[in-house]
């Protein structure tokens, strides 16, 4: 199981990695922004099972990143990580093919349950 975390906050990536480790996901790629995420996906020689993508990022925001990912890797599920304030962006993301979304602040249990649901386990 391989998951790509896209977030400009190293702290948030670290938290997500620790939570994912609790459900046995240790194979994790990280990208600091949308451009790095696209590069990671293009350069990796293996299947990425899930992308977890922040919405509010510099350079490429979450919507732009999602659009770019879906253009070249349509089969990869993308879960958007968003704040409560970004309701309209969430709706746009779902229309663009996002599989689901996580609203910050999130409890650890809620995070794990949503990731499990998307991964189907």
């Amino acid at each position: 199981m391989k998951i790509l975390l896209v977030d400009d906050s190293a702290t948030m990536r670290k938290i997500q990695k620790r939570l994912l480790a609790q459900i046995g996901v240790e194979d994790i790629l990280e990208a600091n922004n949308g451009k790095e995420a696209i590069t990671e996906l293009e350069n990796c020689n293996y299947k990425v099972d899930l992308v977890l993508c922040d919405m509010n990022m510099p350079e490429m925001n979450g919507i732009e990143t999602l659009t770019a990912i879906k253009a070249t890797h349509k089969e990869v599920p993308v879960v958007m990580c968003t704040s409560v304030a970004e309701k309209s962006a969430v709706m746009e993301a779902i229309k663009l093919g996002a599989s689901n979304y996580l609203v910050k602040p999130f409890a650890q249990d809620a995070f794990i349950a949503k990731i499990k649901a998307v991964l189907g386990s």
């Binding site: 670290k14 509010n56 704040s83 304030a85």
Partner: peptide, 29 residues
């Protein structure tokens, strides 16, 4: 850097939650 980055992430989450609680208005962050 963990401290600085984490502090920023927390204020970001607070601001997003604040905006989401306001009826009929919204803020961009």
């Amino acid at each position: 850097s963990d401290l600085l980055d984490g502090f920023g992430e927390i204020i970001n989450i607070i601001a997003g939650a604040f905006s989401g609680k306001l009826q009929g208005v919204s803020f961009e962050l």
